Simulated scan of single mutants.
Amino acid sequence: MTKFIDIEAGGYALVLDDAHFDPSKDISENLSVLASCGYDFTSNWDRDDPEAMMPVLRVAKVMPKTFLAEGELRHGARREAYSGRRYREDVVAFSSDQKELLTLRDRLFEIGERADREIKARADKVVLPIVEQFRKQALTELHEALPEHFGEARDV
């Protein structure tokens, strides 16, 4: 059984948007993909911004498995007012301070983005020399295969 975050009416909930929540997994499994915001090819988290993926909504009423929420959802460049029922298992964090949740959301995304930057930097150190070697070899083979285009003496 999923353990729910304690929430209260009048406060704010940081929730995982439906499009990024896999109901076959619990919230911790869903959030674990933040460790690879996009560099991991199985992740699509880099295709949306944090505001779209984790909206902060005001809690209007709390029920055992759901809650009524109000706020704004973002889908790409489009923003729309939201008022509706949300599952409590989607809640990442709760606070009476909306700014606290916005700061937490930014911090969560920075963790994955920082990991991606480090992975890419280290991978580039290993991969770029190999890429250069194979590109150079391919260019040499192109010159040999098409001497009329790449040779020293060309008829103009």
Rank of each mutant, 00 (worst) to 15 (best):
M1W: 04
K3E: 11
D6R: 09
I7V: 15
E8R: 13
G10I: 02
G10M: 07
G11A: 02
Y12V: 11
Y12S: 06
A13R: 06
V15N: 08
L16W: 00
L16F: 01
A19P: 00
H20E: 14
H20F: 14
H20Q: 10
H20K: 09
F21K: 01
F21Y: 15
P23W: 05
P23K: 09
P23D: 08
P23H: 10
D26F: 11
D26C: 13
S28C: 11
V33T: 13
V33D: 09
V33F: 08
A35W: 00
G38D: 01
Y39S: 12
Y39D: 06
S43W: 03
N44S: 11
R47P: 03
R47V: 13
D49R: 01
P50L: 03
A52Y: 02
M53P: 04
M54W: 03
V56E: 05
V56W: 00
V56G: 06
L57Y: 01
V59E: 06
A60W: 05
K61G: 02
M63A: 07
P64G: 05
E70F: 08
G71R: 07
G71A: 06
L73S: 01
L73N: 14
H75E: 15
H75Y: 14
A81F: 06
A81H: 10
A81E: 09
Y82N: 04
Y82K: 12
Y82E: 02
S83Q: 12
G84Y: 04
R85A: 13
R85P: 08
R85V: 15
R86I: 13
E89T: 13
V91Q: 01
V91E: 04
V92E: 07
S95I: 08
S96L: 14
S96I: 03
S96A: 13
Q98S: 09
L102C: 02
T103F: 10
T103A: 12
R105S: 05
L108F: 12
L108E: 05
E110D: 14
R114L: 08
A115P: 01
D116V: 09
D116M: 08
E118Q: 04
I119Q: 05
K120E: 15
D124T: 04
D124S: 11
K125S: 03
V127G: 03
V131W: 07
E132R: 15
Q133H: 11
Q133G: 05
K136T: 15
Q137H: 08
Q137D: 15
L139F: 14
T140F: 01
L142W: 06
L142N: 05
H143L: 01
H143F: 09
L146W: 12
L146F: 13
L146G: 00
L146P: 00
E148W: 03
H149Q: 04
R154E: 14
R154Q: 15
D155S: 12
